[in-house]
Amino acid sequence: MKKLIVCVATALALFSCQSEEQNNSGVSNTQNAKRSCASNDVLMRQIAEDPSLLQRMEDIERFTDEYQKNPSAFRLVNGKIQIPVVVNVLYRTTAENISLTQIQSQIDVLNQDYNATNSDYNQVPAIFSGVKANVGISFVLDQVIRKSTTKTSWGTRDAMKKANQGGLAPTSPTTKLNMWVCTIGGGILGYAQFPGGSSATDGVVIDSKYFGLSGTANYPYNLGRTATHEVGHWMNLRHIWGDATCGSDLVADTPQHNTANYGVPTYPHYSTCTGTPIEMTMNYMDYTDDRGMYMFTAGQKARMDAIFAAGGARNSFAQP
Rank of each mutant, 00 (worst) to 15 (best):
F317S: 02
A192W: 12
N218E: 15
L189D: 05
A252V: 09
Y284C: 02
S316Y: 07
N236P: 12
E230L: 07
G203C: 14
T281C: 01
G196D: 09
G197A: 02
P265H: 08
E279P: 04
G311E: 06
K301Y: 12
R238A: 13
T228E: 06
I240V: 15
D243T: 08
A260E: 10
I188Q: 05
A192L: 08
T272W: 04
K301A: 08
G186E: 09
Q193F: 07
A227F: 15
E279M: 07
P195T: 11
N283I: 06
I307H: 03
Y270L: 13
V205K: 00
G232I: 14
Q319Y: 09
E230W: 13
T201P: 09
A200C: 04
Y270Q: 07
G215D: 05
P195L: 13
V205R: 01
V205Y: 02
G263K: 05
L213H: 13
I206T: 09
V231Q: 01
M282W: 08
P195I: 15
S198L: 09
N236H: 14
T226V: 15
A318N: 05
G197V: 14
Y267M: 08
A244Y: 13
T245A: 04
T297V: 13
R225F: 10
R314G: 06
A200N: 13
G197L: 11
Q300K: 08
S198H: 04
H257Q: 11
Y294K: 00
Q319N: 12
Q319T: 14
T201D: 05
T228H: 05
D286F: 03
K301E: 08
A227D: 05
W234Q: 04
D290V: 05
H269R: 07
Y287M: 05
P255F: 09
A310I: 15
D243N: 14
H239L: 12
M295R: 00
D305R: 01
A217T: 04
N315V: 15
G212V: 13
F308K: 02
N258S: 01
A244T: 11
G242D: 11
D249N: 13
A298Y: 06
A313V: 14
A306N: 05
T226A: 01
G312P: 11
R314A: 04
A313H: 05
I278W: 08
D249I: 08
S214R: 01
G196K: 11
Y221P: 07
T288V: 14
L223V: 04
D249H: 07
Y262S: 11
F194H: 11
K209F: 04
A302T: 13
G185I: 01
I240L: 03
K209E: 02
V231M: 09
S199L: 14
G185F: 01
F194W: 10
